[in-house]
Design a protein around this nucleic acid. Structure first.
Length: 701
RNA sequence: GGGCCGUUAGCUCAGUUGGUUAGAGCAGAGGACUCAUAAUCCUUUGGUCGUAGGUUCAAGUCCUACACGGCCUACCA
């Protein structure tokens, strides 16, 4: 058999936050696939890197008073350490901030230029004169130009949903410095993706490279109309690569991030004495990308377009997975389900998570739920009770004799297991790990009754029957070994331990097809500890302590999406030791521009009592409140607090409202004010209260 | 509102091109064993396969509608 050349990537984690268990779904999924391919004898390499560029990194480095390079070096070291703990084994782990990547970006760039796909036009963008930087959309807030809502981000309005340019915002402020941004026009470079429309249509709809639902999604959402030009340059200052033929302009982080896959491969080639062309410009090489559904767009439209234009291999397959939920809900810092990789590894065996994810992962892009009770049960029942137990209940008796020289009659168990190998392999290949695990555990379910019936315990008592003991142990340990081989992609350490126990390392899938005979058996050592409920609880508790609030989507990675807000060391160090308040909130929403007392008095804050509160059935976030300002002055106010408060519990309660806010016509009625609250939104909304004694209608000074 | 996916035993899920009394694991109940990490083994309870129609000799499996849930997208504070 000629080995296939398979190049596999997982999305590049952004250098702005630690690895958490949501990320790990992807890296574990990918690592299993790679280990499987290697075990089957394919030439398979696993390539990844840190994604390091962009405004967010620049801002954070600035806040921490150090260089971007120092920041990303620290983050990369932390990421690699976390991955190693989970046995995620990259062939090369690079960085998008590498000379190789710069060179390749140039290559892609020339190709795009030559193909006539680059257009230039001016973009008016807001500029922060204090921070001395152009402002990415999310670093500008102001009043929505469409619906006049206050405090909206620069790219789209949370309230009316309209999208616009940050330059259109009314009364914008920079969230970096609080300064009033100026509109500055600057030339930007665009990739005219529409010119590749036909190619992308054909490539995405071929039925070969994408999961069917993904192809449908693209067809419905993007390919049905002209593809928009893609703005891939950013004016200085920007942490990234300067565009060679456009001094003062930098490639947008999403331009150089996927090219990082190739750059990281180049580093591997350098080390291995291989040629990059053999891996990226070779029709015989398969390229497989594993990504989360949040970055589908980039990997299925832009990226193939770029590869096609620059003459690199197109992805053979883009494997897209869903998000992780914990206990059926999004990971939540306040609930302690936002679990960092590092925290998990301090409390529990990473192998457990690998097995659990494997047992839940299918080829679809459904979200995957980590149910902690199920987690405990599954690990203890499957891995400890069924699999490892096979070895632990027999290895001891086999020490004296070793394995028999001939494989005994076992009622066809080993042959059955060998025959199941191809079905298991197919399940791995198609990323249906759940099915693979099911099939494997079935083998263990058949093996244990064999041991039970064979009664090695009573045989062992009779010295005259040592041959029979050897027979039984030879069967049981071979069945165990067969299972360990099948599980090796998921549980590499177990495979290694099995190899040690039986003096024969597990190196190839094919070893599952013939029993191991005539070797010595070493002393049995515990292979896996059971999961203890207390350890899981301790992990959750510790995760709770870390930061204040905020639900975060347990998404995947690469680039500018899905990153968690970074806390800054500086702010945390300055925090009051007694309360341990995190600096995250301030980082997420920095202080605004200084205002005068006159500015403040323009806003008329009043104490009000909630008289009625009801759900607005059609609205997802809104409650309709009637508040009293005393006497018979009533106001109707819509408040976006549905996720955080039950209407019944609000009635009678005193709140603080903005009483002179211009009324606003909303879909569900006229809103005549605004209820004040703190928090990032969603379930994390906290209404302002006043101390007892205050009366409706009183002004807040 | 649009799109996609799902709805099978208390829980997690299998159910192949429609074909006999719908399966597994876990949990529950009873028993056995004590070699093993209180592991294992045997027996057993439990399902009008979301609802309503339809196609068919035959439907968990195909079609239609509806309900519920999830995700995406839009709308919407």
């Amino acid at each position: 058999m000629i080995a296939r050349k398979i190049l596999v990537t997982a999305a590049l984690p952004y250098a702005n936050g630690p690895i958490h268990i949501g990320h790990l779904v992807e890296y574990i999924q990918t690592d299993i696939w790679v280990r499987f391919q290697k075990l089957r004898g394919q030439r398979c390499i696993f390539i990844c890197a840190d994604d390091t560029h962009g405004t967010a990194i620049m801002i954070r480095a600035r806040a921490e008073g150090r260089s971007e390079e120092a920041l990303i070096a620290d983050m990369q070291a932390a990421h690699e350490l976390d991955f190693a703990k989970f046995d995620i084994q990259f062939d090369n782990y690079g960085s998008t901030n590498s000379p190789e990547n710069y060179k390749l970006c140039g290559e892609f760039w020339s190709a795009l230029r030559q193909a006539g796909l680059v257009a230039q036009r001016d973009v008016s963008q807001l500029y922060d004169p204090v921070a001395g930087t152009f402002l990415a959309d999310r670093f500008v807030k102001g009043t929505c130009p469409i619906c006049k809502s206050l405090d909206q981000y620069g790219d789209n309005c949370d309230k009316c949903g309209s999208t616009y340019s940050p330059a259109d915002l009314i009364d914008p402020i920079s969230t970096l410095s609080g300064a009033k941004p100026e509109v500055r026009s600057s030339p930007h470079l665009f990739v005219e993706l529409e010119k590749l429309h036909d190619f992308l249509e054909q490539w995405t709809q071929s039925g070969q490279h994408l999961q069917a639902e993904v192809a449908n999604y693209l067809k419905g959402h993007f390919l049905g109309e002209p593809l928009r030009d893609w703005d891939i340059s950013r004016p200085a200052p920007y942490f990234g690569f300067e565009i060679p033929d456009a001094p003062g302009h930098f490639w947008y982080v999403w331009f150089d991030a996927p090219i990082g896959y190739i750059a990281s491969t180049a580093q591997w080639c350098q080390r291995q004495g291989e040629k990059l062309e053999d891996w990226w410009k070779n029709p015989d090489t398969e390229v497989h990308h594993f990504i989360g559904k949040d970055i589908t767009y980039f990997h299925t439209l832009f990226w193939p377009g770029m590869l096609k234009t620059a003459g690199f291999n197109l992805p053979t397959m883009v494997h897209i997975h869903g998000f992780l939920t914990v206990g059926g809900a999004k990971m939540s810092k306040s609930k302690g389900t936002f679990i960092k990789a590092e925290t998990y590894a301090r409390h529990l065996d990473p192998a457990f998570l690998r097995y659990y994810f494997a047992s839940k992962l299918g080829p679809k892009l459904d979200d995957l739920d980590l149910n902690l009770t199920e987690f405990i049960d599954k690990i203890n029942a499957d891995l400890v009770g069924k699999v490892v137990n096979l070895a632990s209940r027999t290895a001891r008796f086999a020490r004296a004799t070793g394995l028999a020289a001939e494989y005994p009659e076992d009622g066809g168990l080993f042959a059955q297991g060998a025959a199941a190998g191809e079905a298991i392999a197919e399940a791995y290949v198609s990323c249906d790990y759940a099915k693979a695990m099911r099939l494997i555990i079935e083998l263990a379910d058949r093996a244990n009754p064999y041991v039970e019936n064979a009664q090695p315990r009573s045989l062992a008592k009779d010295p005259a029957r040592s041959a029979d003991v050897q027979t039984v142990c030879t069967v049981a340990l071979n069945l165990f070994r067969q299972i360990a081989i099948y599980l090796a992609p998921v549980l590499p350490r177990l495979a290694q331990q099995c190899g040690q126990l039986l003096n024969d390392p597990i190196l190839h899938w094919q070893q599952s097809q013939a029993p191991l005979l005539g070797t010595a058996v070493n002393e049995f050592q515990h292979m896996l500890q059971r999961v203890k409920k207390e350890d899981v609880e301790a992990m959750i508790e510790e995760s709770k302590d870390q930061t204040a609030a905020g639900n975060t989507t347990a998404g995947s990675t690469t680039g500018t999406t899905g990153g968690t807000t970074a806390s800054t060391a500086a702010l945390e160090a300055a925090g009051d030791g007694q309360w341990q308040d995190s600096g995250d909130a301030l980082v997420a929403e920095p202080l605004t521009e200084t205002c005068t007392i006159d500015d403040f008095t323009k806003i008329d804050l009043r104490v009000a009592r909630i008289i009625t509160a009801e759900h607005v059935p059609e609205a997802r976030k809104l409650l309709k409140l009637t508040v009293s300002l005393g006497g018979d002055v009533r106001r109707t106010v819509f408040a976006g607090i549905k996720a955080a408060y039950e209407p019944e519990k609000l009635v009678g309660r005193l709140v603080v409202i903005v009483a002179n806010l211009a009324p606003r016509q909303m879909k569900f009625g006229l809103s005549e004010g605004m209820v004040t609250a703190a928090g990032p939104g969603g379930e994390e909304v906290f209404l302002l209260s006043v101390d007892s004694g205050a009366k409706p209608g009183q002004r807040v000074h």
